[in-house]
């Protein structure tokens, strides 16, 4: 189906919207597209156009839809939709056209925009998050904190959440998260071992590292 079937309601938004990501309002995640009917073909194209408009509004970048990492997702625009509905077009006395009002999920759109620069966008100012499982009592907790504190490049370690057998640490470091990961992997005693507690959660929080704390006696046995 050709693009002419979809009439862009606010094409000007595509080229000169001034907003920046930091000033995005909820209205920036919804938009209207004039459509000629309710067919799936028209809907699919309209949703893509609507997503393009919203991406421009939310990013402030008129070229954002052309970027490869974003462009690849336009064909699955429906997955970013939170709600859509058809409304009569007040400017069409013949009632032939409709307005497709689309609201996108702010979270999904932000994630889509974040995909293009994820490694750079993660700031170390607030610290990296390390989730350590397998904590068995106060001694282990203290050992883990001291262990992480002793890693090269680490400036400070704070426990943000302590549970019965796991702890979430906020680690400030002079190096990036990859360097931190390497430092942990390079430690001779292997007491922090990579651990996937929840694959899905790990995928959406790339700044969080997850490990299992292993008792030294077990490490010794495993090394033998």
């Amino acid at each position: 189906m050709q693009c002419y079937k979809v009439f862009l309601a606010a094409a000007i938004l595509m080229t000169c919207h001034p907003s920046a990501l930091g000033n995005v309002t909820l209205d920036d995640f919804q938009t209207d597209v004039v459509v000629k009917d309710r067919s799936n073909e028209v809907l699919k194209e309209a949703l893509q156009l609507a997503l393009q408009q919203v991406l421009v509004k939310a990013s402030g970048d008129p070229e954002v839809a052309g970027q490869a990492t974003v462009h690849d997702h336009l064909s699955s625009a429906q997955n970013y939709v939170e709600r859509y509905e058809y409304l009569p077009d007040p400017n069409d006395p013949s009632h032939q056209k409709l307005i497709l009002h689309v609201k996108f999920s702010p979270k999904s759109v932000r994630e889509l925009l974040g995909q293009k620069n994820t490694p750079q966008e993660i700031s170390s100012e607030d610290g990296w998050t390390i989730h350590v499982y397998g904590i068995n009592g106060l001694n282990d907790f203290s050992d883990v904190v001291n262990y992480v504190r002793a890693l090269s490049s680490v400036i400070s370690v704070e426990a943000s959440t302590v549970d019965s057998d796991d702890v979430i640490l906020t680690v400030k470091s002079t190096a990036g998260i990859e360097a931190l990961k390497k430092a942990i992997a390079a430690a001779n005693d292997h007491r922090l071992q990579p651990f996937v507690a929840d694959k899905k959660a790990q995928e959406v929080t790339p700044a969080m590292l997850t490990y299992r704390w292993v008792a030294s006696s077990i490490v010794d046995k495993e090394m033998e």
């Binding site: 309710r38 799936n40 809907l43 939709v81 709600r83 509905e85």
Partner: peptide, 20 residues
């Protein structure tokens, strides 16, 4: 509705034609 695997085109279209 656009990803739904309903085969009957008219039915698929109608499901997508309301509020979603």
């Amino acid at each position: 509705p656009l990803s739904c695997q309903i085969q009957l085109p008219d039915f698929r279209s109608r499901l997508a034609a309301g509020v979603t």
